[in-house]
Design a protein around this nucleic acid. Structure first.
Lengths: 200, 200
DNA sequence: GTCTATAGCCTGATAGAC
DNA sequence: GTCTATCAGGCTATAGAC
């Protein structure tokens, strides 16, 4: 109750984004109503329209909020010290850990890949993936992996993300174990595959 | 107009599934209304309820229809002739081609991974993935790849599917080219990664 | 087996008081 | 900046004629 004057405008607008993010992540754009969001925030539906013009604007703002500082987090896994192999290992371990800790981000990412329009896909690319992508491509070149760097960067992300994406179904597939959801186990496996250390 | 008598019951029920499949694939469960489906089929909304109890039943039936013969298609890529390396190559090339040719199936798969309940995930696992999964695991063992077979099977599927999943965003990422959507290029890349032929 | 009509509820969005 | 009340239309699902 202290300083109620400051608890206005910007605070509510931000609170709305905070509350709508997990709703959109779990049910998607058309699975969430403005009333759902309003009641999660604790205000009336009409009040939402004071902060955001319409549902689409609110959704876009939620995506901007969800993606805003993800790039720096991912980028931090890509510092330039050590051998290429060490940097690869550090990146995979770190990226896996970050993805494991943020299921809402993962869900929004996959929903955007399915449903995103040009504007939102561009936002996602520019705000989140372009910079890490460049670094990974450079890393691929330094490792002298003799393949298309773009394809390799996609493969690295896919190797990690797909294990989380399939978490819900792997329990119905033969050999599925709890440990396969452990970010450390996943990272170890991906590093092994990428460095060819599994032999053959 | 010939044989109008035969154009009843089962035919309409099937036609409904055929028409609802791409709608659900592109917009998801809550993004498609019974009216949307009815008008795609060319009948009234009420008529849908003669064939399916409610929207959920229709959706489940659509998933069963979409997944029904996918297992055999995938399995056909896994015949037992040749060396493990040849079989791996054939499987990756064939699976990639199949996935490339069926964007609706891919979309439904990803939507189910995001939203599927236990019943539908079990359906997807049992009708589509269990048998190919077993074969891949056996292949992994024969290739003497020294890693967890379950993780490897997931990785193989992920390596292929993620390239399609990111098709919409890759055009905003550096180095994205048309050829990266070519199933032959993708398959070649995945095979190279899995066999370690890119060096390092 | 399909139709029209409709019930009852939920939707996004607005008007206007406070 | 938030509320209550409300609108117009969409939603799932049903009733009953043909």
């Amino acid at each position: 109750m202290v300083n109620k004057k400051l608890k206005t405008n910007l605070d509510t607008a931000l609170l709305i984004l905070e509350k709508s993010l997990p709703l959109f992540a779990r049910a998607g754009y058309s699975g969430v109503s403005m009333r759902n969001i309003a009641s999660a925030v604790g205000i009336s539906g009409a009040a939402l329209y004071h902060h955001y013009q319409d549902k689409q604007s609110l959704y876009l703002a939620t995506m901007e909020y969800a993606f805003s500082d993800k790039a720096t987090g991912i980028q931090s896994a890509l510092d330039n010290t050590g051998t290429p192999e060490q940097r690869l290992e550090r990146f995979v371990a770190n990226f896996t850990k970050q993805m494991a800790s943020d299921p809402d981000f993962r869900a929004l990412l996959h929903r955007e890949l399915l449903d995103g329009d040009e504007q939102r896909l561009k936002l996602l690319a520019e705000n989140v993936f372009i910079e890490p992508f460049k670094s990974i491509k450079q890393l691929a070149q330094e490792m002298a992996l003799n393949c298309d760097a773009h394809l390799l960067a996609i493969s690295m992300a896919g190797l990690i993300l797909f294990h989380f994406e399939t978490e819900s179904i792997r329990r119905y597939l033969p050999g599925g174990l709890k440990k396969h959801n452990d970010p450390k186990v996943i990272a170890r496996h991906v590093i092994g595959l990428l460095t060819g250390e599994f032999g053959k």
